[in-house]
Design a protein around this nucleic acid. Structure first.
Lengths: 208, 208, 208, 208
DNA sequence: AATTAATCGAGACGGTACGTCTGGTCTTAGA
DNA sequence: TCTAAGACCAGACGTACCGTCTCGATTAATT
């Protein structure tokens, strides 16, 4: 049950036309289609409205901005795609998680969405907070794996979880955004090995 | 040798008014000022023109887009600020380099510029190539340090330089762009330690 | 029946905000005011938008060019001003019609509009067609008077109506545009006398 | 040696490079060519400069505006084309004169020039005066013919020469500018007949 | 069944900045 | 001192979307 960004009952209704689910789906589908066809910059609210046969005001009623719309479309597209892996080892969990993450390149829409959202977070301070939370939720999943590794004794108890997450996600985003080197799911395992070595290299570096 | 993005003599001149250096400086100064005051999204060509007391067409004559302008203003602002360090050890060089890099947070203009440029690279395919080259030049400086480390025997000769650069720059950009954790120059040393540990951890992970 | 160039219901509405009559009137009033103040060449769409407190896009939505706007403003200004005269004689009708026409000089806005529209018709081929039609409608009014004269037996049935209209309107426009001699309503009667003499002088001259 | 609007030596020269007659001719030729190809509106000083391989400033040095340039080019094109006819009768003179005038339609450049100049006279008050003088010179030629007719006794001595000129030129310009009816040299004779009838119809109509 | 209230599509509204264009001026190097 | 070249300031152009706002028409849940 993904993408609950617009709750079902925000105030005690006493009548009135109910929200059209058809419209909602049309909008998300149009967003996805346009993202794939022209990329994030070519995506406009007007374009989505036209494509979805929906009024602009209907879009603005349910989503407050273009990135909010994209974040919903992205969530719908990846729903139930990322079950938290549990392979029994940190290396296994992380590798599974990262491999799936790197697969983003196989889905133009996901790639455009991620790049566009990151761009928008730089340009729209209001969205930046939302984006930060969204990123935070992905980080939480990852730090959960690390915590299980600590419980198992695979990792020291004092590692800096935040720094670990940066070390894992940083290079991914950097490659995705700059595009100097293609992302390949096969790179995930090697990256995990490196990161684990770094984490075991000594005291947490962020705050000595 | 700063800010040569617009060379002084691109074709053999045979007459014609010479480019106004005053105009050029006014434009870059206005860009810097506006970046500091309102951030990248509030920066507009019209605003720069008005602030610099310059015609819009003069800006468009020398810079093909807003990010091209910002990249020049950034280069001017950081000119001669980053001499390539040479401390005798890889760790020392990298730490010096990264410490200076992390200082970006002390200069709002530099921070706004970096974030805005990365955003623009996602939105403007034409600029993306320019940006990639620009990023590449920074990476080259860094890999130069690593190569010297290899020469000195501090690092194995088969490490993946590209991956190393990703590992170093990735977390920096990730923090800069997401903003979940503040950047602090003091973190640089710890990060270098981690990265070097990762690089020594085994075979190059990217392409075995 | 004034100023219907932008009809109130051009296509069967099925929803949507209705056109703002206030905006329409503000625009036409601003056009008239600016015509009077600075003349046709100083009239700009931007100026009208600013004066009328209206978005430029609103103007472009309803008028495709500056002359189209002026033609509407002119029509509004002269609405119901020129009832077709019916005095019982050709000479009387024509004199009344021409006298009113010559009064254009008393209204700077009308004079500026006429001169500007004629100029624009030379410069903008697309508008030329519109202008020709507009001129045609004035000619039709005039030839209607002549036709009544033929019915009454005042004029021969074989006169060239087109040529007659040229003979009547030509000198008016020529004076208006060149400005070598001031237009005066009192000249109308004499001109009519001359023209009628010319028309009675013999066979239609244009195509024997 | 036509088109002396820009004399060869306007102030007592005291040395320096002499005016390039080649440049002058190139400019006028380019003006004529562009008038024929794209009409008056497509004619720009920049275009002329490019076509004539001449600097914009060179054009501005010798001609103060676009219409001044066109008026020179027109004069050059029609030089020695219009000898004042002397057939022995007013009707003959006028018909010869008008027939030649109506031939303008056979020369696109002349037609474009006339229409453009008239348009410009409406838009550029400074040029309007020049244009009025230019028009005046053509009127003088015509009134000269009428005066000879008075001398011969063909016309009454008290006819209004100015009005006569308006009656003759007005319909010509009106057709040329509006374009509702094609101009044809064969129409000249009939028009002359009509006008003479009008002039003989009675007292001068302009000022009773 | 009538009422009420929130939805829906449509599309006009005021705005802002865009990138282009032309005009007319000014400053060079070279003839 | 002129010429060609071309940069300069200025400002209107017409376009694209933005986010807001009226419309009339639906569509439930509540009376």
């Amino acid at each position: 049950m993904p993408a609950k960004s617009t709750g079902p009952a925000r105030h005690p209704r006493t009548g009135g036309r109910v929200r059209s689910d058809d419209a909602r789906e049309q909008v998300l589908a149009a967003t996805t289609a346009l993202l794939e066809e022209g990329g994030y910059p070519a995506l406009t609210i007007e374009g989505v409205a036209a494509r979805a046969q929906v009024a602009k005001s209907t879009i603005y009623r349910w989503w407050k901005s273009k990135p909010a719309l994209v974040i919903d479309a992205y969530a719908q597209a990846t729903a139930a795609r990322m079950p938290e892996p549990d392979t029994g080892t940190v290396a296994g969990d992380l590798t599974a998680f990262l491999t799936e993450l790197y697969r983003v390149v196989d889905y133009p829409m996901r790639m455009q969405a991620l790049r566009g959202l990151m761009a928008e977070a730089q340009l729209d301070p209001e969205f930046a907070a939302t984006f930060r939370d969204w990123i935070g939720s992905r980080r939480t999943v990852l730090t959960g794996m690390l915590l299980r590794g600590i419980d198992r004794g695979e990792l020291a108890g004092d590692i800096d979880l935040g720094y670990a997450a940066d070390l894992i996600f940083g290079p991914f985003w950097y490659r995705l955004l700059v595009g100097h080197t293609p992302l390949e799911p096969a790179q995930a395992a090697g990256h995990v090995t490196s990161v684990l070595a770094a984490l075991r290299s000594g005291r947490s570096p962020a705050r000595p």
